[in-house]
Amino acid sequence: MRPVGILGAGAFGKGLARAARRAGNRVVLFSRFGQDLDDPGIEVVDDLAALAETTPIFIAVPSVFVAEVGCELGVHLDGRHLLVHVSRGLVGPDLRTLSRVLREVSPVRRVGALAGPLDAAGLAQGLPGGAIVGSAFPEVASAVRQAIGGQSLRIYESTDVRGVEIASAIVGLSAIAVGYARAVGAGPSALAVMVTRAMHEAAAVGQELGAERETFWGLAGLGDLVAATLGDGRPELAVGEALGRGENAASAAKAAGANVESLLLAGRMAEYAERVSISAPVTSTVARVIAGELDTELALGALMARSVGRE
């Protein structure tokens, strides 16, 4: 059995390493800065070439770095390799998915995205949970299942990789809205309206980008958003709460203590929705809050004062 490869030794990368060990696999973990995980089954390397002998290879770096590391890693890979990213980001003004970026910058075609209600701490501790792998290639989902799946971590699969990636990204954004709304005193009913509205927006944007609508009502979309709403401690909620307390985006990000992709995505997503004439009030409100254009009172009003009609 080849070892499992992980590129990126942040909290999520380390969580994946622990999950892979729990599943009985050896791990090769790439870190530029060196790490000691106190596990002889985890080999920490600082040479990307070492990942060429692993399968699958998880890319656990923020979306802005995926193109760069994908390109560097790509010179060591060919068509046999399987790549799986775990990012919640979409890049560029046309919201390109990271599986597409990886296909463009590397020779690897068998690419997937790991998404759903997964968090670093849960992975590291082996808490019961589930996730979804989006990939057009069935062998990618099988490889992820073998790498980190088990009794307590159920791995589902979808061939709609684009839908999984977009849903995952927009859920991050919606989680900011949830945190924000809670901080400004919204009750369960208001949260339910907002969360449902957010999913409709996500599905409409996703469909425009070529995703399947059903994916948004599965584990990558609704399932993940339920976990966020119930308060699974993800950093997006902390960012939203800090914004709701009146902090600006920079200090809110600092308060969250982790990289939050959605802070960068909100503005681009709102612009995209406007460009393709999709009504996206939750997204555009979050984008304006992050940009400091709306104060608390106005923002809650903007979220709730939409015209009502058929669902």
């Binding site: 790509g74 010179v75 060919d78 068509g79 463009e104 590397s106």
Partner: peptide, 11 residues
């Protein structure tokens, strides 16, 4: 490959 190295399509 995108970086110009040759790769085996059989892979």
């Amino acid at each position: 490959a995108p970086e110009g190295q040759t790769i085996d399509p059989v892979s």
